[in-house]
């Protein structure tokens, strides 16, 4: 596990450099910069509309950027070098870069016409040219890890939200990405189903050296899970630090106000 202070010694696996993102006239991200070390577990917190989802979507190439640069695992994400100049990357480059990154969505987005196991094996078979038998063996291992092996034959519509989300995590893991992005993966779940998904995430964090970025409104989970917290507001990082610092001794007024509101809403940190 790498802590904030050690960055600079290790080459970062993600380097976001002054990126801006506009939706029409609205500036969603404003010269945003941050770095993530390999294996680091990062929680992104902040008020609604502060750009947390957007930065994850940008890292997954689901959204484009208006300016700035992003480096992932040593390569530019949105640019390629041509004649010594950085120019916009083509689809083939994006396709190569996406191999390094996986994402789990708030609303699961399982493929409803495919069984649980087929959801997990589809991408490895198609994009990694894995043999079906190998993909299924690995798929079953992953489903076992998220506690869904007994539902391998089920269709997504037969599952509860928590079960769907665990399958979605297995599906993202099947491509063995170096970086995993989680966007509020428990916020669409009934309260009693949240814990089973969080347990899978804790297991992942403990057992793998994957780099994980997680957007969450569950502060106590962010506290346990993250090596470092990024507090977003207005498309910028207002404050960052270890969970203990951010939650116990927030320096910025806006962080303090945000946490006060969260506690007033009844959450424990």
């Amino acid at each position: 596990m790498v802590l904030a202070g050690e960055i600079g010694v290790v080459q970062p696996i993600i380097k976001v450099d002054r990126i801006s993102k506009n939706f029409g006239a609205f500036q969603c991200l404003n010269e945003l910069s941050f770095e993530v070390a390999p294996g680091e577990k990062i929680a992104l917190i902040g008020p609604s509309g502060s750009g947390k989802t957007t930065i994850l979507r940008i890292l997954m190439t689901l959204e484009t950027i208006n300016s700035g640069h992003i480096e992932v695992d040593g390569d530019q994400l949105y640019h390629v070098e041509r004649n010594g100049q950085l120019v916009a990357a083509d689809e083939a480059h994006l396709h190569r870069m996406r191999q390094k990154i996986g994402m789990v969505f708030q609303l699961f987005n399982l493929f409803p016409h495919k069984s649980v196991l087929d959801n997990v094996t589809l991408a490895p078979i198609l994009t990694k040219k894995m043999k079906r038998a190998d993909a299924e063996r690995r798929g079953m291992e992953l489903l076992d890890m998220v506690g869904m092996a007994d539902k391998a034959k089920a269709m997504p519509a037969q599952l509860s939200g928590g079960q769907k989300q665990r399958v979605a995590i297995a599906r993202a893991l099947a491509l063995s990405p170096k970086i995993m992005l989680f966007d509020e993966v428990t916020s669409a779940l009934d309260p009693e189903l949240v814990e089973e998904v969080l347990n899978v995430m804790r297991k992942l964090a403990a057992e793998t050296d994957m780099t994980m970025l997680l957007v969450t409104h569950e502060m106590s989970f962010a506290n346990d899970f993250a090596d470092r917290i990024l507090f977003f507001d207005g498309g910028r990082i207002v404050e960052e630090g270890k969970p203990g610092e951010i939650f116990r001794h927030p320096k910025q007024e806006r962080t303090q106000a945000f946490l006060k509101k969260i506690i007033a809403a009844g959450q424990r940190i």
Binding site: L62, H95, R98, M103, N109, L122, A123, L126, T127, L175
Partner: peptide
């Protein structure tokens, strides 16, 4: 978006 995150062409 899921298809893209799964890196399908």
């Amino acid at each position: 978006e899921a298809a893209k995150a799964c890196n399908l062409t």
